[in-house]
Amino acid sequence: MTQVSLVDLIAGARAGLLVSFPTDTVPALATLPEKAGLIFAAKQRSQDKPLILMGASAEDLWPYVKGSENELKIWQEVANQHWPGALTLVLPASNRLPPQINPTDPTTIGIRVPNSAIAQTILAQTGPLATTSANFSGQPPLQKLIEIAAQFPEALTLATTELSDEITGLGVPSTVAKWTGADWQTLRSGVIQLNF
């Protein structure tokens, strides 16, 4: 069980290790996009369940998607309304995306900017990370970093002493909306209610 300081967690993430930290929804398991296989292995997760690319800002994430000028405008309007926040947008992926994030359909990518100071601090220094909830596949997301450290001893987990002023997450995964080419389709309902 490895609980580490913020500095060590950021260094570990940048070195390609598996890390865990709080977000505005549920705590994340995260790693560099090209190391996404670590998450699938740790969670015993099926390859057909893609990971989310989380970034500190929308500007960090737009290079990983591709669309027409008009589509980008629509996506940016939705992002401006709900980011940072508990909304994941599933969009057509650019060729910058490592296929390990979405092994069965590398043509799409889920992206999100969390409304969490600690998560944004980490992501601003690591760049976008492949993320998912911290739990074994099919089980409820773990809420406490101490439980995550116990269940995922291979992950660097943020020490709770680093979180004195951090608001804990909502405990509900993000809303997931997919762009169909003409409209939005809600794949998972969460805190954010979308009225498309």
Results as ranks from 00 to 15, higher is better:
94 S>A: 13
171 G>V: 07
179 W>S: 09
138 G>Q: 08
101 I>S: 04
140 P>Q: 13
164 S>W: 10
92 P>L: 04
76 Q>E: 14
66 K>Q: 14
47 Q>D: 14
99 P>I: 11
67 G>V: 07
76 Q>H: 14
45 R>F: 06
157 T>S: 12
96 R>K: 14
62 W>C: 08
170 L>S: 14
51 L>A: 07
53 L>R: 12
158 L>Q: 00
160 T>A: 09
174 S>F: 03
97 L>I: 14
79 A>D: 06
153 P>C: 00
127 G>M: 12
70 N>Q: 15
96 R>F: 14
133 S>Y: 02
173 P>L: 00
155 A>H: 02
73 K>R: 15
135 N>D: 04
166 E>K: 06
63 P>I: 02
100 Q>E: 08
67 G>Y: 02
110 G>N: 05
51 L>D: 07
132 T>M: 03
125 Q>F: 02
84 P>I: 09
56 A>D: 04
85 G>Q: 01
116 S>G: 05
139 Q>T: 15
158 L>F: 00
64 Y>T: 06
66 K>M: 10
149 A>W: 00
108 T>R: 13
56 A>R: 04
78 V>C: 12
165 D>A: 15
148 I>V: 10
112 R>T: 07
57 S>I: 03
113 V>K: 12
62 W>M: 09
165 D>Q: 15
129 L>Y: 07
72 L>M: 14
117 A>D: 13
65 V>C: 05
55 G>P: 02
166 E>F: 01
151 Q>T: 09
121 T>R: 09
75 W>P: 11
98 P>M: 10
179 W>E: 05
123 L>K: 10
135 N>E: 00
141 P>L: 07
150 A>M: 10
98 P>V: 05
119 A>F: 00
152 F>G: 00
86 A>R: 02
165 D>N: 15
79 A>H: 07
84 P>H: 06
98 P>F: 08
141 P>T: 04
112 R>W: 03
125 Q>W: 06
129 L>A: 09
49 K>C: 04
115 N>G: 09
171 G>R: 02
50 P>N: 11
78 V>L: 15
76 Q>Y: 11
72 L>E: 13
169 G>V: 00
77 E>T: 15
129 L>G: 07
71 E>C: 12
62 W>P: 01
54 M>R: 07
134 A>R: 01
100 Q>I: 09
88 T>Y: 05
108 T>N: 08
122 I>M: 03
134 A>M: 07
147 E>F: 09
157 T>I: 05
114 P>Y: 04
59 E>A: 14
84 P>T: 10
132 T>Y: 01
113 V>L: 06
155 A>I: 00
160 T>Q: 13
70 N>R: 15
131 T>Y: 08
86 A>G: 05
93 A>C: 09
80 N>C: 07
